[in-house]
Amino acid sequence: MNLSLPGDAPTISALVLEKIGSFSITNTMTSSLFGDAVLIILCLVAAKFTVRNPGKFQLIIEGFLLGVSSFIEQIIGDKKAAWRVMPLVTTLILFILVSNLVLFFVPILSGFTYNGMTMFRSHTSDINTTAALAFGMVFLSHVYSIHATNVVTHLGKYIQFRHVILSFFKGIKKGIMASVEAFVGILDLISEVSKILSLSLRLFGNMFAGELLVSVLMGMLAIGLPLPMMILSLFSGTIQAIVFGALVAGTLGSIAKEELHKQNKFT
């Protein structure tokens, strides 16, 4: 009796199912579309909730939203600023959560094949998705920062010529301290780039490692052995969705606080 199920180990790049011109449809894209459809249906259902007659499903959704909002408040530490970034962060968490878990909760999906290739693969295990998400969020944080203050103040966070020159007029010691701060500002510029890398690689690595581990264990013994690893990747999928949301909330929340602070000063 053959107890192992050796399959193709997932590769880093997704499989190309079909090509329309130069535009290729990959198997992560189909599952992304499926996840989007699930989310849109969820939204349409949630929009019809009434206050008068809450069902079980409504309680689950509202409980989730309450949990996420109190979590974001805890991170940012300011209720008003938290509500500014909450819609975006909740959407992000929901999108990543659905994409990580859709293959676990709709198990039939992994059985579909197209020309002998698996048709669905969780789309956070494709580096393009996570890189796009991370780049979008970092780009948004810069745009929001410019919107909240202005271009000069925003660039001034990184390049602090004025502060250095003014400090040298006050004294040599203060000037040296200011130039150290200016160097840290330039380091921040590098950290913005590495933020994109770390955000995208963290999510991608976790999901991809889960898939790979399960497929390797399937090749050893297909009965029972992969189960703990699947549960672990279910767990890490949830955690990583929350971590991604938390990091974005932290970045955007500090800018939202700045904006609120500025508004309070003028009024």
């Binding site: 880093i12 979590f71 805890q74 770390s198 690689l201 963290r202 991608f204 690595g205 976790n206 991809f208 490692a209 790979l212 890490s236 955690i239 990583q240 929350i242 971590v243 938390a246």
Partner: peptide
């Protein structure tokens, strides 16, 4: 109650360095 979530998140953050090594391993 309040430490559990924070601990889980910080573990995930620390673990991400191992994940970078894993990505390097496969590339």
């Amino acid at each position: 109650a309040s430490l559990f979530g924070k601990a889980i998140i910080s573990i995930a953050l620390v673990e991400s360095t191992a994940i970078y090594a894993l990505v390097a391993f496969f590339t």
